[in-house]
Write a protein that binds this DNA or RNA. Structure first.
Lengths: 243, 243
DNA sequence: CGTATCCTTGACGAAGATCAAACTTTGTGG
DNA sequence: CCACAAAGTTTGATCTTCGTCAAGGATACG
């Protein structure tokens, strides 16, 4: 693991130690670099023949719109995350993808991806691990919304982000930059924006976390972990059996 | 598609037309048949080296227990569903699996599974399709809990079950047998059992559905679909690109 | 420097939780 | 086959959490 590598390599490297050759193969996987402006959907529900991307910088969110116009954000992708793996394997996307900030991402061609997988099985393993981790996060999100109250849910979410960002070298134990508005937070946590605001104030007044001016400052990590019942094992489970 | 085949074959057959040879391969995939009693966990959080199963009869649920003892059910598996595909590929399970009823399932050995995949790619495709469908259901579940109110959420869930059961030949347009208690429903929908009861009464009084004595009777399918904003495309999206 | 977006707070209302208790169905052992 | 226990269902009363509405204030942006 080396800071000079891309966030993607850095993330996979946390799971399997990558050789120089594997690093090179990864680098070649990165195709044309593209830039997407904030707020304009990259992918629409029902859109077909979508490309896959590896996020180099910026944040995006995946969401669904309901009939009454409300929306639910399913997950966020941050630098180093794979974007649209499922949309590539399957023809149509069943959700929308919107950049939260300006985003830089390298396109990945299906052909290159499959080629890489067959030539370098360890990388296939690593990507599969990343995909399974994404799935585990969606499940944990579901559990959060179903059974945790607003305050615990919010704290849990901020801690998850912290762990993910640390893995790609963004942020530290004491905090991280976070471009999410309280509206986005609300649509993620299944709350109203007004209530998100109140909950954030409480967490701040409790001396646990402060989320202001695009920055999350963790004042009392242990206290926050205990309050949110945050158990990060779902983020770093063991690797696949497939060799 | 033929009623004489297993629910599993029947489900996959709805996606790819299976040849006689592929049917035979599928049959051989089914290993030792096992029986599990209701209520006793088949898999625990953190358990390793888990087998995978294909459900032949009965229902099971996957859930997580929180620190305060409450639980959230993530999804159900019904006959024809694959069970623990992820737990096989990855060493440890991050959730519990409990039979809701007495369950019959055939064990699937990883070795056989991988062999089948390389010999009969169309089956790999079909299983991948099934896995992606499961993921889409979890996402839809998340959206439901996050942004639909109790009544709509409940109606939506009953319709999803209806669609899934029809696919494997259990139940019809007008109803199906359902072994779920109101407690299970509550842990699924993120509600209290008391409120589930009230919501079911309302749906009954509206002349939409009746869920009593282990049977769901759909009185007004169109009305229910409209009320729940049920759009079943997430259940039968297009197939994978991989051949 | 003006305008749009986002944040903050208060007052009020509604959806759903909790508590409690009766009733019904299902299952079990004698 | 009955009796009793256990599990599940139903309903009412009350309380809590969170949503909605409204309006003022702060920030960021062009």
């Amino acid at each position: 693991m080396n800071a000079s590598h891309s966030p993607f390599a850095r993330k996979l490297g946390a799971f399997v130690a990558l050789s120089k050759k594997e690093h090179l193969t990864l680098d070649r996987l990165h195709g044309r670099r593209k830039v997407f402006p904030a707020g304009k959907d990259m992918v629409h529900q029902g859109q077909t023949n979508q490309a896959a991307y590896i996020l180099a910088s910026g944040w995006v969110c995946s969401y669904k719109i309901l009939a009454d116009g409300t929306r639910q954000i399913v997950d966020f992708q941050i630098p180093g995350d794979f974007l649209g793996l499922r949309s590539v394997l399957f023809r149509t996307s069943d959700h929308n993808i919107e950049p939260v900030t300006k985003v830089e991402a390298s396109e990945v061609l299906v052909r290159d991806l499959l080629e890489t997988f067959s030539e370098t099985p360890r990388l296939a393993t690593a990507v599969l691990w990343a995909a399974s981790r994404d799935e585990a996060m969606v499940v944990e999100h579901l559990v959060s919304i179903g059974r945790r109250d607003a305050k615990e849910r919010t704290a849990h979410f901020l801690l998850e982000l912290s762990a993910r960002l640390k893995l790609v070298g963004l942020g530290s134990l004491s905090g991280y930059d976070c471009p999410l508005s309280q509206y986005l937070l609300a649509d993620t946590l299944g709350l109203s924006a007004v209530h998100v605001n109140r909950v954030l104030r409480e967490l701040r007044e409790d001396g646990l976390v402060t989320f202001q001016h695009g920055h999350v400052e963790i004042h009392d990590l242990d206290g926050l972990v205990e309050f949110a019942h945050f158990d990060k094992t779902y983020l770093d489970h063991d690797g696949p059996l497939l060799r």
